[in-house]
């Protein structure tokens, strides 16, 4: 459904994309993960035809992006990171406007709008102006606007940033339903649980490159990490953490705990405890957990996803 080969993008001296390649099959849910500045949004912008690539071949739904951008556009829906709606128009009028850009017949479009408003739980408030909506409700309409023309492929760039749990859950339900119906997804997110929940395959981006791609299991095996030792301390500070980091390469500090990446946690456990005691850290809790995308990313790049 999507084929990207040796894609490069240069902005003056800076190279935002350094020759990335990937294939996405019809109905597949493909996640792009990476820290800020990794090149995720540039990739989405090029695939959605608003940024010209410096080099590379792209095919979307069987159409060459360079030769036939309009045909590509008709087959994709894009949910941008920002809320791209007209605040002074109602939800219905917004959807009517955005849908009409894809030349959907008015009657069909109106029917689709009603479906979308029901799907996203906003039918009762369809005639209210967007500026009266909460952030979560705006996000829902932001997604609905990209689905009106029933695209084969949907690009979602951080679609759940900064919203309430109720809206997030509703969006998750819609995403799952659309995926089940066979829609192809390209999804960028900072939320690991989203990626782990939805993605059939994941591309991990760093510094303009895809450093690894595959299913979660394939990535786990690539990272050579099987488990993490999660330790809580009563006296952890920056100085002590730095001391700890000099002795262990693969550690992550998050939410007051330190994760030690390990290929054999049971064997490494005593070493970790001894080392912590040696530098004066008081352990309050210790646990062994499985790997997640965060730890996989750390093991592959040496950096945290949220850097």
């Amino acid at each position: 459904m999507i084929s990207v080969s040796n894609l490069r993008k240069k902005y003056d001296a800076a190279e935002a994309l350094k020759g990335i390649s990937f294939e996405i099959q019809k109905g597949e849910f493909f996640g792009l993960l990476g820290p800020n500045g990794a090149g995720k949004t540039t990739t989405i912008s090029i695939l959605s035809t608003i940024v010209e690539p410096s080099q590379g071949e792209i095919s979307i739904a069987g159409f060459d992006l360079k030769k036939n951008p309009t045909a590509c556009k008709k087959n994709i829906g894009v949910v941008p990171q920002e809320i791209a709606l007209y605040n002074d128009l109602s939800a219905f009028d917004n959807l009517l406007f955005w849908g009409s850009l894809y030349q959907v017949p008015v009657e069909v479009l109106k029917k689709r709008i009603d479906e979308m408003l029901h799907l996203f739980g906003l039918y009762e408030r369809r005639n209210e102006k967007i500026k009266t909506y909460s952030g979560g409700m705006k996000r829902r309409i932001n997604i609905a606007a990209a689905l009106l023309h029933q695209p084969q492929i949907i690009f979602m760039d951080e679609p759940t940033v900064g919203i309430d749990p109720q809206s997030r859950n509703l969006i998750y339900e819609v995403i799952a339903k659309l995926h089940q119906e066979g829609m192809t997804f390209v999804y960028t997110t900072h939320y690991m649980e989203e990626a782990e929940r939805f993605c059939d395959r994941i591309g991990i981006m760093d510094n303009g490159q895809i450093i690894a791609q595959g299913t979660l299991e394939e990535l786990k095996s690539l990272s050579k990490i099987d488990e993490t030792i999660v330790v809580s301390f009563s006296n952890l500070d920056d100085v002590l953490f730095q001391q700890l980091a000099t002795t262990h390469n693969s550690i992550v500090r998050e939410d007051g705990v330190v994760r030690f990446l390990s290929s054999d946690a049971k064997a490494d456990l005593s070493t970790v405890i001894l080392e912590c005691n040696r530098i004066g850290l008081s352990i309050t809790h210790i646990d062994i957990q499985g790997v997640n995308l965060e730890t996989i990313f750390l093991s592959l790049t040496g950096k945290q996803l949220r850097d």
Partner: peptide, 14 residues
Amino acid sequence: QEGTLKRLLYSPLP
């Protein structure tokens, strides 16, 4: 500035 132009550019409209 508000992102709607980007969304217009995503559409098939030249």
